[in-house]
């Protein structure tokens, strides 16, 4: 019941690896379906969501909360989709959006630039254009990671495993990943399932609040939900109503409290 996230640069054969890993392990696989589902659930155009998860925040976006809102929506959908386990997610930011779960095998597929350019050229692009596109894409992702999570996507400490595809074949990489996924550390214990449920609950609550209250922090431990807000936010009628509705709709919440005057802890979403 483990979860595998595969992060890759464009034209790094990440998709091929992910599909083969899923087929070999009999796991479900998804990537863009995440944006499709999020779009349907929160009524936001897929294009907007894609921009939110791909492009670094622009000058004006740094002062507005739109990116924060869309990311919260995407994360809420993702955590819900992975909560049933046996999932391979390849795509943007999986390793960061699911970083609070312990049974996630976070894989990074890398390839040298020349190889990537060649694969891109196979799509009928000139070498110059292919190279420019790959470099621009890498640059956007780096900026996005830095701005949103203060992390460099090339930092290997963010992953459990980094596979360079140049010397290994896709099959070799798949074999490595599958063997790693079967290790005890990535087994879905009852604790992991609870963790996943808690994260999903916290992300969904955050998604409900984020549009009107972008700075609230939410944590969920063993079904006990804790919202960190300012005094002003906590006393707003809308805030209270949203929380009341959440409590009514979610029978899995055992306790819901709002703490004010405290900074949200690092594990809050």
């Amino acid at each position: 019941m483990s979860i595998i996230t595969i992060s890759r640069g464009s034209s790094s054969l990440g998709k091929a690896v992910a599909e083969k890993v899923a087929a070999k392990l009999g796991y479900d696989i998804f990537s863009r379906d995440l944006l499709f589902k999020t779009s349907g659930r929160f009524h936001v155009p897929q294009k907007t969501l894609e921009k939110a998860i791909h492009d670094a925040p622009g000058i004006f976006e740094r002062y507005s909360h739109t990116k924060k809102v869309y990311l919260a929506y995407i994360r809420a959908t993702l955590t819900e989709m992975v909560s049933r386990g046996n999932i391979v997610y390849y795509g943007l930011a999986g390793h960061l959006l699911l970083n609070k779960l312990s049974n996630v095998l976070k894989v990074r597929i890398t390839a040298n630039l020349e190889g990537r350019v060649k694969r891109k050229m196979a799509e009928g692009l000139s070498e110059q254009k292919a190279r420019a596109m790959i470099l621009a894409d890498d640059d956007q992702r780096k900026k996005w990671s830095r701005k949103i999570y203060n992390a460099d996507p090339n930092d290997s400490s963010l992953y459990d495993m980094a596979v360079c595809i140049d010397k290994l074949s896709v099959e070799n990489a798949v074999d490595c990943i599958c063997r790693c996924a079967s290790r005890k550390a990535f087994e879905s214990t009852s604790d992991c399932i609870r963790q996943s449920k808690d994260l999903s609950l916290a992300c969904n609550v955050k998604a409900s609040l984020v549009e009107s209250f972008p700075d609230v922090g939410v944590i969920c431990e063993y079904g006990n939900l804790l919202v960190y807000a300012t005094q002003k936010e906590a006393h707003a009628a809308k805030f209270k109503k949203i929380l009341l509705d959440i409590k009514k709709e979610n029978y899995d919440i055992y306790n819901l409290e709002v703490h004010t005057g405290l900074a949200a802890p690092a594990n809050a979403v």
């Binding site: 431990e221 006990n224 804790l226 306790n255 409290e257 709002v258 703490h259 005057g261 405290l262 802890p265």
Partner: peptide, 12 residues
């Protein structure tokens, strides 16, 4: 009007 039961140790 609030009642705190969770993470009491953190409450100032």
């Amino acid at each position: 009007e609030d009642v705190y039961r969770a993470k009491l140790d953190d409450i100032i």
